[in-house]
């Protein structure tokens, strides 16, 4: 592990330890926060008893569906919009404003369109994630150095060869950013809309525990979400660093 990684781990462990001490000694009241060890114990209980496993699986499936759809259609849409500069110029301010609108308010609209099912949650998560992928695909295509396109032409690569062997690798860092953001936004969209409106899923379970003053379950599930998203992010971060190293040949 790198020195920074060790420090980071130490920092997080120290933070958890401080929380544990503060809650155990009563400096922070149990009605506000429970000790991290109690969260873990409850989480282990939830998993062992098999409660909420359906909710968790269901949420993860929704996130995955929304993410896969957002990345594939966002990538294709990005290519399409990039080919039409005029459309793109008009769309730019729209993209810039997009993330300031709380999409969750459209949940009732989604129910009217898709019916009472899992689809409204997936639709909102998809809408939330897709624009990040489109914007980053556009950025990636913009940053392909012109010389690379010329090299491809000099070598008389076919269109498909040029796209696959030259353009895609050149745009990869931005595409990666888009994928990372799409995962994050798919999670946010799914869990937030479950939290506010839905009647099942991880977000709903947290809101349900909160409304029933079941702090232990609430914090256990929060810890699960935070740890899961954190782990996915750290994994992607390391993978991206390795990719970038290979690119620069260092």
């Amino acid at each position: 592990m790198t020195r920074a990684g060790a420090w980071r781990l130490g920092l997080l462990a120290g933070f958890a330890l401080a929380l544990e001490l503060a809650t155990r000694t009563g400096a922070i009241s149990h009605t506000i926060l429970i000790p991290p060890s109690a969260m873990l114990a409850r989480l282990a209980g939830i998993v062992a008893e098999g409660q909420l496993v359906d909710d968790i699986a269901f949420t993860l499936l929704s996130v995955l569906t929304a993410f896969a759809l957002a990345v594939s259609t966002g990538f294709l849409a990005g290519i399409g919009i990039h080919a039409l500069p005029r459309l793109r110029r008009a769309l730019d301010p729209f993209f810039a404003t997009y993330y300031a609108v709380p999409f969750f308010v459209f949940y009732p609209v989604m129910i009217a369109i898709f019916g009472l099912s899992k689809l409204p949650v997936i639709a909102i998560a998809y809408l939330f994630a897709v624009v990040a992928m489109i914007v980053n695909t556009l950025n990636g295509l913009d940053r392909i150095p012109r010389v690379l396109a010329k090299v491809a032409r000099v070598h008389r690569l076919s269109w498909a060869d040029a796209a696959w062997n030259v353009k895609l690798p050149a745009a990869a860092p931005n595409l990666f950013t888009g994928i990372k953001l799409a995962i994050a936004y798919a999670f946010i969209g799914t869990i937030a809309s479950e939290f506010i409106m839905a009647t099942s899923g991880l977000g709903y379970s947290i809101a349900y525990a909160y409304n029933n003053f079941d702090n232990r379950t609430m914090y256990a599930l929060m810890l699960f979400v935070v740890a899961l998203v954190g782990a996915i992010n750290l994994g992607l971060y390391e993978w991206e660093k390795r990719l970038m190293k290979r690119r620069t040949g260092r």
Binding site: R8, I191, F195, G203, M222, N233, Y237
Partner: peptide, 18 residues
């Protein structure tokens, strides 16, 4: 950096009760 990135991508709604 990874901690801030994680905060950025966390569904913060879950933390709202906190």
């Amino acid at each position: 950096e990874p901690i801030v990135v994680a905060l950025y991508s966390l569904p913060k709604v879950t933390l709202y009760p906190l």
